[in-house]
Simulated scan of single mutants.
Amino acid sequence: MTRPQRQINWVVLTVLTIDAVLLAILELFFLPLRLDGVLLPRAGDVPLPLSVLLAMITTPLLVAKAASLGDRRLGIIPLAAWVLTLLVVGVQGPGGDVVLRADWRALALLAGGLLPAALVAGGKLARPGKAGR
């Protein structure tokens, strides 16, 4: 791989990692979304964790793209950034607030983002080929 290509790959990896951090914050803050008539229509005050669905779709895509940049182990970087951001912002939050409440939605967000992305990362790492490729 040429030097300009390596530099472009590092820029793309940096953008993917920043995207993972921003998505984790967005998913975390929209996790308590409810059908309560304030932001969404009123439908019995039912929780509507759309951010779990967003995490299930976007996190594996970020991991797959990062793993395709050369070294397959690079796919773990956006996943680690997503989990670290989710835990740090969720537990300490802005101004010391606890954003990640201890309920089923928090577990669904962690599992929905982490498990599919870990499966994608494992699938990329398990493929036969040259080491470090």
Rank of each mutant, 00 (worst) to 15 (best):
A55I: 04
L53R: 01
E27V: 05
P60N: 04
E27L: 04
V21M: 13
L31G: 13
L39T: 15
V11E: 02
A20E: 09
G70S: 02
A43D: 15
A43P: 03
R42K: 15
M56Q: 08
P60R: 04
V11T: 13
L26M: 12
D45R: 07
A55E: 08
L74Y: 05
G37C: 09
G37F: 08
F30Q: 14
G75E: 05
F29Q: 14
V15Y: 00
K65R: 12
L16N: 01
L31I: 09
N9Q: 14
V12E: 01
A43N: 14
A55T: 05
I18G: 13
L26P: 00
L48G: 03
D19M: 14
L26D: 06
V21D: 08
V46G: 01
A64I: 00
V38R: 13
M56N: 03
P47R: 10
S51N: 05
A43H: 12
G37Y: 07
R73K: 13
L50V: 14
L53N: 02
D45L: 08
V21Y: 11
A55N: 05
S68E: 06
L33G: 10
V52M: 07
I57Q: 02
S68W: 00
G70E: 01
I57H: 02
V12Q: 02
A20W: 07
V21C: 09
L48P: 06
V11I: 14
L48K: 03
P47A: 13
L16H: 03
P41T: 09
G37S: 10
P60S: 03
A67G: 12
A20L: 07
F29I: 06
D71C: 02
V21G: 01
L48Q: 09
P47V: 11
Q7C: 04
L33A: 13
L28A: 12
P47L: 09
L74N: 06
D45V: 02
V63S: 08
P32C: 11
